[in-house]
């Protein structure tokens, strides 16, 4: 369980969250949404203990800290310094217990865990190919396996769908949902488009302009709540089980907002 109390979070001079409190129960799937720059990644980094804040974040009743083994993380910002031919397996193995001092040797137990994760994410076919030559979807699956190393109880997934086509997005969401249910993991999942996640989310957290609201999907993604959040008239349209958020400007001027769920 994640308990957030009176969280105040900033990114440079910008307020991301002000006196925000929430409780995310164990084994729940929370979608985190908001426009570019709203602070979705910063929020996840605060939970990881990588960003400074005031207030309290408790992970299973204990204050959070950097390197908490309960947490698995998939970062949106991944930079690869060099071009090399190291395989997906090499990238996965390097993460296993990579925070410990000593030589990068994988024990039989770690090897077993790596093999079972490769099977879990269905990467048997491409895991031994050069990692940097893999497709976006294949790399994201390996990144998910990296996040799952150490059997975390909380998964923080920052934009795992970015750069994927709709079919790959669907596969990725189903895979994460399956893993979440199988291991009873709490998932915090940031995304730009709410639609691929509609069937799997238990709750939604929506961030915008330093404000945040959290709750079940239909209670949050509606015209009333989003208009309050944006301080502007917002229309939510459900078309064939596909949500569209429209930003209405001065009555006749209707524009699709710059971060539409479509």
């Amino acid at each position: 369980m994640i308990l957030i109390e009176k969280l105040n979070l900033r990114f440079a001079d910008k307020i991301i969250l002000h006196d925000f409190s929430a409780r995310i129960e164990t084994g729940k799937f929370l979608g985190v949404f908001g426009p570019n720059g709203a602070g979705k990644s910063t929020f996840l980094q605060a939970i990881l203990g990588l960003k400074q804040y005031t207030g309290r974040i408790l992970i299973f009743d204990k204050p959070n800290y950097k390197g908490n083994p309960y947490m698995g993380y998939l970062s949106q910002f991944r930079q690869y310094a060099s071009t090399n031919l190291l395989s997906g397996r090499a990238y996965l193995s390097a993460v296993s217990q990579g925070f410990r001092w000593g030589l990068p040797r994988t024990s039989p137990t770690e090897k077993k865990q790596i093999e079972s994760l490769i099977q879990l994410i269905g990467a048997e076919e491409f895991i031994d190919r050069p990692y940097l030559s893999l497709s976006g979807g294949e790399r994201q699956r390996i990144a998910l396996a990296q996040a799952l190393l150490g059997q975390p109880k909380v998964l923080l997934l920052d934009e795992p769908l970015s750069g994927l086509d709709p079919a790959q997005q669907e596969k990725m969401v189903q895979l994460i949902s399956k893993i979440q249910k199988q291991f009873n993991i709490t998932v915090l999942f940031t995304a730009h488009d709410i639609n691929p996640l509609l069937g799997v989310m238990d709750q939604v957290l929506y961030l915008a302009q330093g404000k945040a609201i959290i709750g079940p999907v239909n209670e949050i993604i509606n015209s009333e709540k989003l208009s309050w959040l944006y301080d502007a008239p917002i229309k939510v349209i459900n078309h064939n089980n596909h949500l569209f958020v429209i930003h209405e400007k001065s009555g006749s001027n209707i524009n699709v907002h710059d971060h539409p769920f479509c």
């Binding site: 390197g67 993380y73 970062s75 390097a94 993460v95 925070f99």
Partner: peptide, 11 residues
Amino acid sequence: LEPELAEAKGV
């Protein structure tokens, strides 16, 4: 190989 992840894991 994975600086962002390493930082999150306490390195």
